[in-house]
């Protein structure tokens, strides 16, 4: 057979639109997922029941259901309860962000727990409040330990962004589908997006390896 990437290149503007879509949803979910995850993670660490139990239920539910089911639920089911409709971007972002929040919450919790008690004692002895100690003393140290796991989460979020195509959100994979059906070149179209994803994710994966090695060396 003949590979014909010209037909893909001819549609590079469509791919560019897709790439912008991928980046947009990635950025939204990265910020929302890791940000909300911190709140949930603090809840998982908290001794207050009204904070701990909802956080735990949240984590258990979103970790133990497939993210695609969550996306379809937000897209097809949620609007029925809402007075407004939900866009593909909103549904996909909700699903991916909440899912990532549940996973990153456990990273935050483990990271915070890994800091020795003595650090807390030291901070409290200076007269810091819980939140001050957390923000100034504990989190900065914990974050360093969590970085490899969090970069890993970022990679997962990037990969999950393709699921938005299931609700017809315009991103790279969705555009590949479009190009493939218009030009009858699924081999080239899908190979091209696979290569694009690989090229974007490869450096991130290498960064994670590097961070893991550096952390192992420092500790």
């Amino acid at each position: 057979m003949q590979w014909d990437f010209a037909s893909v290149l001819a549609n590079s503007d469509a791919l560019l639109v897709g790439a912008m879509g991928t980046l947009r949803i990635f950025a939204i979910c990265l910020v929302a997922g890791l940000g909300l995850g911190l709140v949930v993670g603090l809840g998982r660490y908290s001794r207050r029941r009204w904070f701990y139990w909802p956080a735990t239920a949240f984590v258990e539910f979103f970790r133990n259901t497939p993210v695609l089911v969550q996306i379809l639920w937000f897209y097809f089911a949620l609007p029925i309860l809402m007075p407004f409709s939900i866009s593909p971007l909103a549904a996909a972002s909700l699903g991916i962000s909440l899912n990532s929040a549940a996973f990153s919450a456990e990273i935050y919790r483990a990271g915070i727990q890994s800091i020795e008690r003595a650090q807390w004692d030291g901070a409290r002895a200076l007269g810091m409040s819980f939140l001050q100690a957390m923000r100034r003393i504990i989190l900065p140290q914990a974050l360093k330990r969590m970085t490899p796991a969090l970069t890993n989460r970022a990679i997962e979020i990037f990969k999950m962004s393709t699921l938005a195509s299931a609700v017809a959100y315009v991103e790279l994979l969705q555009q590949a589908k479009l190009i493939a059906s218009l030009n009858f070149n699924p081999i080239e179209a899908y190979t091209a997006v696979a290569v694009i994803f690989f090229a974007c994710l490869w450096p991130m994966v290498q960064l994670t390896y590097f961070l893991e090695r550096r952390l192992a060396r420092d500790e």
Partner: peptide
Amino acid sequence: IEVFRTTPPLVQLFWFFFALPLI
């Protein structure tokens, strides 16, 4: 190992379903 760990599973699935049969 690296390729399958660093590309999205949905892209892999589409490739195996739509592209591979033609190849």
